[in-house]
Write a protein that binds this DNA or RNA. Structure first.
Length: 723
DNA sequence: GTTAGGG
DNA sequence: CCCTAAC
């Protein structure tokens, strides 16, 4: 209690089209889901305990259906309604960037901490100095509950993520280090992006556990137009991941917080098992490349004997997931580790409720805004970051992003969620919000006897290692990688709503930065450079794809929420409201929506981004899904009327009759809508979501449904017998 | 191409 | 909304 640690990792910057479909229940679970062994379970439980957080899970009210209501008026209906002359009805159909981003990576490390000691933040930049880093790394320390000291050096340049690595000595202390990594963006970016806004305000602090990254990108149309097409100015942005150059986008980092309250656990017991801690980037078990090495951290604690053989392997990893598909299957919350892999894709039903909301570690939210407007092409971007600052002003084309990262121990996966909502406003700005993203899968192997603290640290180290190498941003539009960085958003079509749906961002390990490995090795139990640490050194492998959820009405237009691509829209089906929901419980939902492309079970495999099949495939799939277009009351009315006359089972006729002009409404849609209407009519009003349908219409729905059901029975007497 | 249902 | 089996 004395000290709570919270680690949040915040990434900013990637957007991906939100895809409602992600939630789809039909999806198969990822094959690589691993079985959790008993030991693992224990470990998980432990983690869960440690990570106990508030559940955001939304409760569902029991649905009460009253079928009785259907019967009413059944007779009358026939005469009055059915015989009623046909009115011509016409359904009224509702209508319906480059920027500089900063990636901030926050690292928090926890070593075995002495509870008694005051928390001390330590920045470790050792070894980092030698490396040249593309990005500027700023580290900041903060104390959550137990005052951490802020490190004098708020910023470190030239260091990549490495800085976060803890030395063994540090282990003894509780360290919370936040590192903000700013990836410099090219100066050219400015041209393209006139303005970037943070959507920070949009997110309420509702989730401690969640890492949220809010990025808003606003494109200034005017400037865009001014830009010469194809000029270099834009090139820096969205650089092709493959390209060695540092990503133009700057992600502003979030903070990572890891909270564990149980530091109080006696270390003595913990110490024993600490000898081996292996952190491996995710891969198949056999091939796991992790290095088991006595962690420096553990060193201090190292007991006389190791209990070594039993190891708990955890997979913390986030696997690359298919953008398009999520498995809907949801596992027990306890199966954190395993589940994580899959959960991303889980269908909304399951995943929404469980994944994030439960088992969340109460991380304190933290937002970091990075507003520095200027970036040098060469240099590192320096940003002044403010925690919890609510707003950023970017004057110069700089993007501010706030990111919050969260580590979800319960799932035992590190996830950064990226959520982007894009809003296109009249002024031709494109706003994107990246809500969350997920960290690639990690493996951790640690003795059972290891302390919670050491486990935390192991996780931390793994994450650090992952991030250390640096990330770059890739963009995918309609399943194709955007390689021409010089194009404007307008030219690429990103400014269009439709295009946004198909837009995706990827975070990929930055090949160019393979440097870290050696450094890490010492302090971290990270695989040496030759180790196939998946995240490091493989430039080409797409690390993560972030679906972007686009929300219309970011500001004004609350009503239309469109989901893009992969991310599932918040579950309020008909409910148009975006923002609020995003902030609140929806937030959790939306997180779940995040999809990460699955790279295949082999985390280590290097798959070129442009590699033949996978990527395109995912995106293709993702973009196939139509955007969600809730039925308006007028449409419902038209549907009801048509069904009243034509009956169910003649959807094509219904379509032609009432929705002939609505090309986006297929007869299947109408059929589905009718199905939902019937369901809606049967449930209590409190359980209904979305734009409320007049009770009168619902009554008609029930009446008509009952009537036509009756008619069918008449025609198929045999079925009656069954009843 | 439509329907009907499950997801 | 998607997906598919069954017509």
């Amino acid at each position: 209690m004395v000290a709570q640690k919270r680690i949040g990792y915040g990434f900013v910057g990637c957007q991906v089209p939100t895809k409602p479909r992600a939630a789809r229940s039909t999806r198969k679970r990822d094959t690589f889901q691993t079985r959790v062994e008993h030991n693992q379970m224990c470990a998980i439980d432990l983690l869960a305990t440690v990570a106990s957080g508030t559940l955001l899970q939304e409760k569902q009210n029991p649905i009460t259906s009253s079928d009785e209501t259907m019967k009413k008026d059944q007779r009358g209906f026939v005469k009055e309604e059915v015989q009623d002359g046909n009115k011509p009805f016409k359904a009224e159909l509702p209508d319906e960037a480059s920027c500089e981003r900063r990636l901030q990576q926050g690292f928090v490390k926890e070593g075995c901490v002495d509870t008694n000691k005051p928390l001390k933040a330590e920045l470790s930049d050792d070894g980092s100095s030698d490396r040249k880093c593309i990005s500027t790394l700023s580290l900041q320390e903060y104390d959550l509950n137990s005052g951490l000291k802020e490190s004098p050096h708020s910023e470190i340049e030239g260091c990549s993520c490495i800085a976060s690595i803890l030395t063994s000595s540090s282990l003894s202390e509780r360290l919370v280090t936040d590192t903000l990594l700013d990836v410099k963006s090219h100066s050219e970016m400015k041209n393209i992006t006139s303005k970037v806004e943070l959507g920070s305000s949009g997110f309420p602090d509702c989730s401690d556990c969640n890492v949220d990254v809010d990025v808003s990108i606003v494109k200034d149309e005017l400037r865009k137009s001014e830009m010469p097409i194809g000029t270099e100015t834009g090139t820096s942005c969205f650089k092709d991941p493959i390209d060695d150059k540092p990503p133009a986008l700057v992600v502003s980092g979030g903070n990572a917080k890891l909270s564990g309250r149980d530091d109080s656990i006696p270390r003595s017991s913990l110490l024993k098992g600490c000898d081996n801690v292996t952190v491996v980037s995710r891969d198949d078990d056999e091939n796991k490349s992790g290095c088991a090495h006595p962690s420096s951290k553990t060193k201090a604690f190292r007991p006389k004997t190791c209990i070594g053989d039993q190891r708990i392997r955890k997979r913390l990893a986030s696997k690359y997931r298919r953008v398009a598909r999520e498995s809907k299957h949801d596992t027990l919350s306890n199966n954190v580790l395993d589940r994580n892999f899959n959960t991303v894709y889980n269908g909304r039903k399951n995943s929404y409720s469980h994944q994030i909301s439960q088992m969340n570690i109460p991380f304190k939210k933290r937002k970091i805004f990075d507003c520095s407007s200027t970036s040098n092409s060469n240099g590192n971007i320096r940003s002044g970051r403010t925690y919890y600052s609510t707003k950023n002003d970017i004057n110069q084309g700089v993007s501010c992003s706030s990111s919050r990262m969260r580590k979800d121990l319960g799932k035992s996966s590190l996830e950064a969620y990226h959520h982007r909502s894009a809003l296109q406003s009249r002024d031709s700005h494109v706003k994107l919000r990246i809500k969350s993203f997920r960290v690639p899968e990690l493996f951790i192997e640690i003795p059972e006897t290891a302390t919670v603290a050491s486990l935390k640290k192991a996780v931390m180290d793994a994450v650090t290692t992952l991030l250390r190498g640096g990330l770059r941003v890739g963009m995918i539009l309609h399943g194709k990688k955007l390689r021409d960085d010089s194009k404007t958003l307008l030219q690429t079509g990103i400014s269009h709503d439709d295009e946004l749906d198909a837009l995706g961002f990827t975070l990929e390990p930055n090949a160019s930065q393979s440097l870290p490995i050696t450094c890490v090795k010492d302090s971290l139990n990270v695989p040496s450079g030759d180790m196939p640490l998946s995240l490091i050194g493989h430039s080409s492998s797409p690390a993560v794809v972030f679906p972007i959820q686009r929300v219309q009405g970011f500001s004004n237009t609350d009503h239309q929420v469109t989901t893009l691509g992969n991310i599932v829209e918040s579950d309020n089906d008909s409910a148009p409201s975006p923002i609020n929901t995003l902030g609140g419980k929806k937030l959790s939902d939306s997180k779940e929506l995040v999809t990460i492309p699955e790279m295949g079970s082999e985390g280590l495999d290097i798959l070129p981004v442009n590699q033949s099949h996978q990527k395109p495939k995912r995106t293709e799939i993702s973009q196939r899904r139509r955007i969600r277009r809730p039925f308006s009351v007028a449409e419902v009315e038209a549907l009801v009327e048509a069904v009243e006359r034509l009956g169910t089972g003649r959807w094509r006729d219904v379509k032609l009759r009432a929705f002939d002009d609505a090309k986006h409404r297929t007869y299947v849609d109408l059929k589905d809508k009718w199905k939902t209407l019937v369901h809606t009519a049967r449930i209590s009003p409190q359980q209904r979501r979305g734009e409320p349908v007049p009770q009168e219409l619902l009554d008609r729905v029930l009446t008509a449904h009952a009537y036509w059901s009756q008619q069918q029975l008449k025609h198929h007497p045999e079925t009656c017998l069954l009843l």
